[in-house]
Amino acid sequence: MSKFDFSPMPDANGYFGEYGGQLIPPELKTVMDEINTAYEEIRQKPEFQQELADLFADYVGRPSPIFYARRLSEQLGGARIFLKREDLNHTGAHKINHCLGEALLAKYMGKTKVIAETGAGQHGVALATACALVGIPCEIHMGQVDIEKEHPNVVKMKILGCTLVPVTRGTATLKDAVDSAFEEYLKDPKNFIYAIGSVVGPHPFPKMVRDFQSIIGTEARQQFQQREGKLPEYVTACVGGGSNAIGMFTAFLDDENVNLVGVEPAGYGLDTDKHSATMSLGKPGEIHGMKCYVLEQEDGTPMPVHSIASGLDYPGVGPQHSYLKDLGRVQYDTATDDECLNAFMTLSRVEGIIPALESSHAVAWAIRTAPTLDKDQCILVNLSGRGDKDADYVAQKLGL
């Protein structure tokens, strides 16, 4: 029996402990409650579960495999490193898991347009893909800075038929894209649906996205036991909003001997203002309709944040992550931009796997930690996405 009590999470009002909720205008609360009701209805339907399972198997290519990074492990010494290969999913990342669920929900509710934000473009590509599959219009808001960094994903979204809206306000990155998309959604919340790209925002999105992403950990736990005859001593994933991490961690929450580690962007360093280390340096606050840990300026507004990985530069974090931090069940650590780049190149050249810059934060933690552990211990890394989208940017950055 676990010393932690994880049920129910969230409660009926969408709170994980003191975090989460619906910090939104009353008229929007009605719409969110309708989405929650529709989600609870649809998830109980065997035909929906079967359709989603079939799409996961035949469209996404699940289950994604677990790969033993033998050469990397031998070079580092210490613990053996394993990778959960979400980068092998259709569209190249974990995002397709919840995008299929959200697109099917939008169709079930009779919505006329799906609106979303994207940072690195993985959520945008996955949602544009899912919307093309179910036949519903899709509009993606993306910061101009990220558009320039993530050109391959921008092209894919346009090919898939979505309307791409460049966002030039503020820092022109993920937080500003969220603001822009939310404003568009508010124009007609009755007919539009905002398909949030992570376990953030007002209830029910942190719950809903977690549920769709939990297949990662469910598969990984079973696969690892079958392969190694035990559970890994450490499970790690990168954390921005936190969807791939919650997707991986959920299945392991009751396994007290499994250490769960979320890795945030330290950017240029925690002693600078160029980072996105929300859990490490933030404090409880409010952002985008929820209570969670937030990086704030002195006036209480969200801090302009930085990460080399466009999908992680967000000043908030999922409310369940905030709760798990306070509970002490998950440890939150960081990796700098330099460590991330080193991990990106190391995994590419030692194992022939080019990881997303987001995922490279978790790989960096594993590279740093493995030599400090015994050889009979194992680290399971959620390799949340592939690095095709980052290849040109990294090559330019490193002068390759």
Rank of each mutant, 00 (worst) to 15 (best):
F4E: 00
S7W: 11
M9H: 12
I35G: 00
Q75T: 09
A79M: 07
I81A: 08
G92D: 09
I96G: 01
G101R: 02
T112P: 01
E117Y: 01
Q122S: 08
A126H: 03
I140E: 02
M142N: 04
D146S: 04
H151P: 00
I159P: 01
C162Q: 03
A181L: 05
K190R: 08
G201V: 04
H203C: 00
P206Y: 03
D211E: 15
D211P: 05
F212Y: 15
Q213D: 13
Q226D: 14
R227M: 15
G229R: 10
K230R: 14
L231D: 12
L231W: 13
E233Y: 11
F249W: 00
P265C: 10
Y268M: 10
D271Y: 02
S276R: 05
M279R: 04
K283I: 03
E286W: 10
I287W: 08
G289K: 00
V294A: 12
E296P: 06
D299M: 12
T301R: 14
P315T: 13
S322Q: 14
L324V: 11
A335C: 14
D337S: 14
F344P: 02
E351Q: 13
I354H: 04
D388P: 00
A391W: 01
D392M: 09
K397V: 10
L398A: 07
L400H: 02
